[in-house]
């Protein structure tokens, strides 16, 4: 019942009638399920077993971009964080900070996108909270999601699990999300058919774990790109990683954008990709399972885990390397700061 208020107002955050209306007309109607419908202060859940528990804040400009929006992103972000731990995502909690003046229609589109994505990932939003802040105090809407998932018996991928000899498998092309966002930035606009890869990965992970429960480690290379994900895993696992740069799948338009703006696909954000560390003997079956899933059709083995002591003559804290055209190795470092378009 928001007949006379087309935009979100401060009163919507007051906890009074308008606040209730906002929750009911926008959130609980779209995201309805037996647990959320009670609108209790907390969701009561019955779960048996080992839980994965995570939280992720989402800010993106613009709110809607080719291939996704902040609603879809906020669900996939948390689902994927659970999935790469081997967990089956179950429930999501939602915190929304809305800037005064945001059109209600926009908020409904975002919520509808969350509903569709949650359905796709087979998770339920079971509790939530909204706040409204004054114009200028937020950029449209900020969404925080927290989630829990159940880790099946016998499965234990973790960031610390990579072992020398593991194959490094990437589930698909790099940088689609980063470049899709870039294409909307003022002054950089360009046309391409490129869409963000923003997608929930839990069904892909399920197929991978069905192929081998010995998947040692997984990570979704979001901010900081593959370079950050590989450096994090290598450091946590105490190993070194060698990748073959020529085997990295990158779409032509992403490569073109990188040439144009001086960016590196290894550093661009992804929102629907994962990198997995799998014992060499199981790599073939895991790769085949990934390739038979729509989100892993372009999966490729991009490198291998090596003993850091054998680290190709490099000493010091460096753990990730790429082989160059001339046969040498170069260091892939942890990225620093944001990637800015440059002309030199």
């Amino acid at each position: 019942m928001t007949h006379d208020t087309e935009t979100v107002q401060m009163a919507h955050g007051s906890g009074g009638r308008l606040g209730r209306e906002l929750v009911e007309s926008v959130f609980s109607s779209a995201l309805a399920n037996n647990i959320l419908n009670r609108l209790d202060d907390a969701a009561c859940l019955e779960v048996q077993g080992r839980l994965a528990f995570t939280i992720d804040g989402h800010v993106v400009s613009p709110l809607f971009f080719p291939g996704g929006d902040i609603g879809r992103l906020s669900v996939t972000g948390t689902v994927n964080d659970l999935a790469v731990m081997g967990a089956t995502p179950l429930y999501i909690a939602l915190g929304v900070v809305i800037e005064e003046g945001l059109p209600l229609h926009t908020l409904k589109l975002i919520t509808e996108s969350m509903r569709a994505t949650a359905g796709e990932a087979k998770v339920e939003v079971v509790t939530g909270d909204t706040k409204v802040v004054e114009r200028g105090a937020a950029d449209g809407v900020f969404i925080t999601t927290s989630g829990i998932g159940l880790i099946p018996e016998g499965v234990s991928p973790s960031g610390r699990g990579a072992r020398p000899g593991d194959a490094v498998i990437l589930s698909g092309t790099l940088g689609d999300h980063g470049v899709a966002i870039l294409s909307c930035r003022q002054g950089l606009e360009f046309d391409s058919m490129l869409k963000s890869d923003c997608a929930p990965l839990n069904s892909l992970v399920r197929e991978m774990l069905a192929a081998s429960v010995r998947v040692h480690a997984m990570r979704d290379p979001t901010r900081g790109g593959l370079a950050a994900a590989l450096n994090e895993i290598a450091a946590a696992s105490g190993v070194a990683i060698e990748i073959e740069e020529e085997t990295l799948p990158v779409k032509p338009s992403v490569r073109a954008a990188c040439e144009l703006f001086g960016l590196d696909p290894l550093l661009l954000a992804n929102e629907g990709k994962l990198v997995a560390f799998v014992p060499e003997d199981d790599a073939g079956s895991v790769l085949a399972a990934m390739r038979s899933h729509p989100l892993g059709a372009e999966a490729a083995i991009i490198g291998r885990v090596v003993d850091p002591a054998a680290g190709a003559g490099f000493s010091g804290p460096f753990r990730v390397f790429a082989r160059t055209v001339l046969g040498g190795l170069r260091i892939i470092r942890m990225p620093v700061g944001e990637q800015l378009p440059r002309i030199c």
Binding site: E246, L248, A256, E259
Partner: peptide
């Protein structure tokens, strides 16, 4: 990064074949 020559006038020049010979 894949080997498909799709960025015209760039990818053709990235083939690694001649590099070893030039280095020799």
């Amino acid at each position: 990064m894949n080997n498909l020559p799709v960025l015209s006038y760039l990818d053709e020049f990235r083939a690694s074949g001649p590099a070893g010979r030039l280095l020799d």
